[in-house]
Simulated scan of single mutants.
Amino acid sequence: MDNILLKYMEKRYESKIIDPKKEMFCEGPVVTISRECGCTAINIANSLAAKLSAKTGKRWTVLTKEILERSAKELNLDPAKIEYVFNSMEKSTWDEILAALSSKYYQSDRKIKKTIAEVVRSFACKGNCIIIGRGGVVLTNDIERSFHVKLHAPLEWRASQLQKIYKLSMEEMLKYAEEIDKKREILRNYFNKEPLSTTVFDVIYNSKKLRDEDIVDSCIDLMEKKGVLGKQIVMG
């Protein structure tokens, strides 16, 4: 019974799933920043955007919550209605069925994720943007003028950084960091269709040992050498 209803629901409410990377050619330039929980990316992203804007003469923007808001708008939903997807939570079969039957605004999990992918891709195609999380590294990795960063650090250090924000015990922060890391990995793997290899990143920085300013300056130097900002320099 469950399967029959779910199949009916999917046929009625779900459009064909497409791969946004095959539907939309993108030139970039675009930067993605993935991070382990406790490694702050927003300050690095804002500083990087300011320096890139000054260097290129074009305005660079930082995107994170904007992706959620644009996706919700495309689906004609309140952002709160789709935020659960970023937390790697899914509706049960009966939740899906009841939502489909009771609301003309119903959208399935797969439809929401498809829309998120398309929104990320559309931002990347416009270029001059820095995307924090949201599966950006997977969805833009084929773009020639792209640069992909990952921030990591020892778990205990990350938990200590979280303590400064949440004022909770070390044990609680250790558990929280591990849970968030798993949720982010699940979303990336969903878009990638398999576990994501660290080889997709251009560079991985240790947030514990490097200052934000040093990370930003290093990114710009490597982006220039890779040709993301203009003419490519052959790296030997």
Rank of each mutant, 00 (worst) to 15 (best):
L48H: 08
I44A: 05
E27G: 06
V31P: 05
K58H: 11
E83D: 09
M1F: 14
L162G: 06
I220L: 06
E23G: 02
N43F: 12
S88I: 13
D181E: 04
V62C: 03
A80C: 04
S146Q: 10
N189F: 07
P154T: 13
I165K: 12
G230K: 00
V31W: 14
I18H: 12
K91I: 02
R59N: 09
A153Y: 02
S102G: 15
L75G: 08
V119L: 04
K16Q: 13
K51I: 06
E156P: 00
V119A: 05
S53L: 03
V216T: 05
S34L: 04
I130W: 08
I17Q: 11
R145P: 04
A159H: 05
K65A: 09
V234E: 13
K51P: 01
D221H: 09
R145I: 03
K114M: 11
V138R: 01
I42W: 07
S103W: 05
L210D: 04
K21V: 02
N43H: 10
I131W: 05
I97F: 12
I17F: 07
I132V: 15
K21E: 07
M1D: 14
E118Q: 15
N43Y: 11
M24R: 10
C129F: 04
T115N: 04
G230C: 05
S92H: 03
S92Y: 04
L52K: 02
D202P: 02
L98C: 09
R35P: 01
I116D: 00
L68S: 10
K167R: 11
I233C: 01
K104D: 14
P154M: 08
